[in-house]
């Protein structure tokens, strides 16, 4: 079992990259989710259509394919040098999950009961005021559990960045097991456990959010 004490420190070496990718993806994906979700509800046809294209494309294709595609296409097609694979990884995960979560944003806003909007109209609020004071406070409460679930998905997704050369937890796991073939099963098992430990606070958070979201919302 001394191997355990050898393996874990190796895996920890990848922690900074994993956490960095996760944090970056989280921030940008939530941002994108709100922008895209609200855009799909816009009364402007152009905004609505473009956003729909984005959402359908990123929801309809596979994350790993998007990752490789952006890795090769950005420099070649768009002459964009993001500086490092780190940003390619963050951007891909953010765009992918931003698309899924934009549907959560859109759905939550739509599912706030129609009566709430009507009460707002009866009180002569502007569309913006209704959104800000009545709809969004309730919609956000509904979004939280799903956002928490997607955060766990994004944590799992970070493992893919090892495929474009980033030195995350999985990378170091692969490295160690390639030189210690006999211990390969143990190494990968420990890698899984490592990710699970990272996921535990998120799982706890989701459970809390599910309780919190139940109160304070009027839905049909």
């Amino acid at each position: 079992m001394e191997t355990l004490s050898e393996i874990f420190p190796e895996l920890i070496k990848g922690l900074p990259i994993t956490l960095l990718v996760l944090a970056g993806s989280a921030v940008f994906s939530y941002l994108i989710a709100f922008i895209a979700g609200l855009s799909r509800l816009s009364r402007n046809v152009v905004i609505r259509t473009f956003t729909s294209f984005y959402v359908e494309i990123f929801r309809g294709t596979s994350l790993i394919v998007q990752l490789f595609w952006l890795y090769f296409a950005l420099p070649v097609l768009f002459d964009i040098d993001l500086g490092s694979e780190l940003w390619v990884g963050i951007l891909t995960i953010a765009l992918n999950y931003g698309a899924y979560m934009s549907e959560v944003v859109r759905g939550s806003i739509l599912s706030v009961a129609k009566g709430q909007t009507e009460a707002g109209i009866a009180l002569n609020m502007t569309r913006f005021q209704r959104m800000r004071l009545i709809i969004l406070p309730q919609a956000v409460r509904m979004m939280l559990p799903e956002f928490g679930n997607y955060l766990i998905q994004m944590l799992k997704a970070t493992s893919l960045v090892s495929l474009i050369g980033l030195m995350d937890v999985l990378y170091f796991g692969e490295l160690y097991s390639s030189t210690h073939i006999q211990q390969a099963p143990l190494v990968y098992l420990l890698t899984l456990i490592f990710y699970f430990i990272l996921a535990l606070p998120l799982i706890w958070f989701v459970r809390k959010m599910e309780a919190f979201s139940k109160k304070g919302v009027a839905s049909e």
């Binding site: 766990i152 799992k156 999985l170 796991g173 006999q182 390969a184 098992l189 890698t191 899984l192 990710y195």
Partner: peptide, 18 residues
Amino acid sequence: STPPLVQLFFLYYGWPNV
């Protein structure tokens, strides 16, 4: 809650050595 990629690696690279 753990990455499917790692699970695949476990099965392909790890299992033979169990």
